[in-house]
């Protein structure tokens, strides 16, 4: 299952969605600012409501810019996932995104996975159980 979600004409961030056995993988590319967050929110929430996954992985490797609107966006999705009873994780945030996450202390509230020198590392509340879930998936 592979869908391309094209947003409005303003070439705002693009979301690619992939769903397999309870895991919804969303890959965001482009800028995440206040303007773009609105359409991003609609796209991402639509996917979450549609698939009702057990785990949402938000891949950030292709994010080119993010400001505090991105933090609000993550917080909102985290709350939504919590309400729906699914886990929510940020994957592979670029260094600039990571800086803003740690500045706000959000890297401790949310689970952030980062591949570091070929080794997967997690921070946040479910860091320890993170590896377990990865194994379950396989």
């Amino acid at each position: 299952m592979h869908t391309q979600l094209q947003d409005d004409a303003m070439r705002t961030p693009n979301v690619q969605s992939e769903y397999a056995s309870g895991v919804l993988t969303l890959t965001v590319s482009g800028d995440i600012d206040h303007h773009c967050a609105a359409s991003l929110r609609t796209s991402v929430d639509r996917e979450i409501y549609y698939y009702r996954p057990k785990l949402v992985l938000l891949h950030l490797g292709d994010v080119t810019f993010m400001d505090s609107a991105g933090l609000g966006f993550f917080m909102g999705r985290y709350q939504l996932c919590k309400t729906l009873g699914c886990a929510f994780r940020l994957v592979d945030p670029p260094e600039r995104v990571m800086r803003i996450l740690s500045l706000s202390g959000m890297d401790r509230k949310l689970t952030v996975e980062k591949v570091y020198r070929g080794e997967k590392r997690s921070t946040g509340p479910s860091a320890a159980e993170g590896i377990k879930t990865e194994e379950e998936r396989i």
């Binding site: 400001d67 505090s68 933090l71 609000g72 966006f73 917080m75 909102g76 803003i100 500045l103 706000s104």
Partner: peptide
């Protein structure tokens, strides 16, 4: 102040000035 926000929806971080 960090985390100060007028927002009630939980979609805003209140980190603008801190950043």
């Amino acid at each position: 102040e960090p985390l100060f926000t007028t927002d009630k929806s939980g979609e805003r971080s209140g980190m603008g000035f801190a950043i």
